[in-house]
C-alpha cells in the first residue's frame, strides 16, 4: 500500500541514502587525493569564513571563561604559587651556573673560530579555536601567511614542541598537534644520543620507535627533536616507561608530551627554520667532506 505519507517516507529515505552515498564518494575522493587540491582550497575557504566568527566569539567569551576558570581554580592556585616560588629559586641558582658556563663557551668559540647561529626567528600567535570534535587534533591560530607563516613550520611553546603548521590562510593557520596520528617527529634521546621516530596516537602518550637502538631508554629520559623535520633540540617529551633494545627488534615505548596540549593559549611559530635549511646544511657538509677527502 502506498499512501501519500508512504511516498513521503520513501522520498526521505531516498534522499538519506543519496546523501550518505555522496558523503562516501567525498570521503573516498579526499583519501585518494590525500587532502590536497580541491579539498585544500575548500578547507582554506571555509576557515576564512569561520575565522572572523570565531574571533568575535573568542573576544566576547574569553574574559568570562577566564574569570570562571580562575574562581574554580582558586584553591589550587595557592599550592601552584608555592610550587612556582620554589621552582623560581631553583632556576635562579641554575641561571648563575649557566652564566659562568656561557662565558666559557664564548671564550672557547672565539678560540676555535666557530660561528654562532642566530636565534631562530619566531612569530607569536594566540590559539583561536580547535577542531569541532573530540577526535580532531588541530588548533587554529590568529596569524597566517600575512605574518610569514607557511605550511610545515614548527610550532612551540615555552615547554616544547606543540606541532606543525598544516594549513595557512591570510590571517589564520591550522596547527596539527604532535598527538595527531599523521604527525611523525624525528627525535633524539638525550641520555643515549640515539635517534628514533615519535608518532601521535590521537591522545595521551606518544609512541616512540627506535630502529637501530643499541642502548636501553629509561623512565624520565628526555626526548628532543633531532633536526630532520623540525629545528633540533626542541623538547618533545619524556620517556614514560623503561624499554630495552633487543637484537633484531624495534625498541618501542611511550613518551609523555612536554607540552600540556589541553592548556595551550599562546604559541610561537618558528619561521626562521625549515627542513630545507637542514637539507642544505647536510648537502654542504657532504660536499665539504667530499672536497676535504
Amino acid at each position: 500500500m502506498f499512501s501519500s505519507s508512504g511516498r513521503r517516507i520513501d522520498r526521505v529515505t531516498v534522499l538519506f541514502l543519496s546523501l550518505v552515498a555522496v558523503g562516501f564518494i567525498v570521503a573516498t575522493f579526499d583519501v585518494r587525493s590525500s587532502g590536497d587540491g580541491v579539498a585544500e582550497v575548500l578547507r582554506e575557504g571555509t576557515q576564512s569564513i569561520f575565522t572572523p566568527l570565531q574571533e568575535g566569539v573568542d573576544f566576547v567569551t574569553r574574559p568570562v571563561i577566564g574569570f570562571v576558570d580562575g574562581v574554580s581554580n582558586l584553591a589550587g592556585l595557592r599550592d601552584e604559587n608555592e610550587r612556582l616560588a620554589d621552582r623560581v629559586r631553583e632556576l635562579e641558582g641554575q641561571v648563575q651556573a649557566t652564566e659562568a658556563l656561557e662565558e666559557q663557551v664564548i671564550q672557547l668559540e672565539a678560540i676555535l673560530g666557530l660561528a654562532v647561529p642566530d636565534e631562530l626567528a619566531t612569530v607569536a600567535a594566540r590559539i583561536l579555536s580547535s577542531g569541532p570534535s573530540a577526535f580532531d587534533n588541530v588548533r587554529y591560530i590568529d596569524k597566517g601567511s600575512d605574518d610569514g607563516i607557511v605550511a610545515g613550520q614548527a610550532v612551540v611553546d615555552e615547554d616544547g614542541l606543540v606541532g606543525r603548521v598544516d594549513l595557512v590562510s591570510a590571517g589564520a593557520a591550522r596547527i596539527r598537534l604532535i598527538t595527531d596520528p599523521v604527525v611523525s617527529v624525528g627525535v633524539r634521546v638525550l641520555s643515549t644520543n640515539e635517534t628514533g621516530i615519535v608518532t601521535g596516537r590521537g591522545d595521551g602518550p606518544l609512541r616512540l620507535e627506535m630502529f637501530r637502538a643499541k642502548e636501553a631508554v629509561y623512565e624520565d629520559d628526555r626526548v628532543v627533536t633531532d633536526g630532520s623535520r623540525f629545528p633540533p633540540g626542541i623538547a618533545v617529551g619524556t620517556i614514560r616507561r623503561t624499554a630495552a633494545a633487543e637484537v633484531g627488534f624495534v625498541l618501542r615505548t611511550d613518551v609523555d608530551p612536554a607540552v600540556r596540549l589541553s592548556q595551550i593559549d599562546f604559541v610561537s611559530v618558528v619561521v626562521g627554520w625549515s627542513p630545507i635549511d637542514a637539507e642544505l646544511q647536510d648537502d654542504e657538509d657532504s660536499l665539504s667532506t667530499v672536497g676535504g677527502g
Partner: peptide, 24 residues
C-alpha cells in the same frame, strides 16, 4: 537531512579528519 549533511561537511572542512565522515 540537508542541514545535517551541510553541517557535517562544514565540520569536516574545519576539522582534521577525512572529508565526508561527519557529513555521513
Amino acid at each position: 537531512l540537508m542541514i545535517g549533511f551541510t553541517g557535517g561537511l562544514l565540520m569536516d572542512l574545519i576539522g582534521s579528519g577525512t572529508l565526508g565522515l561527519w557529513a555521513m
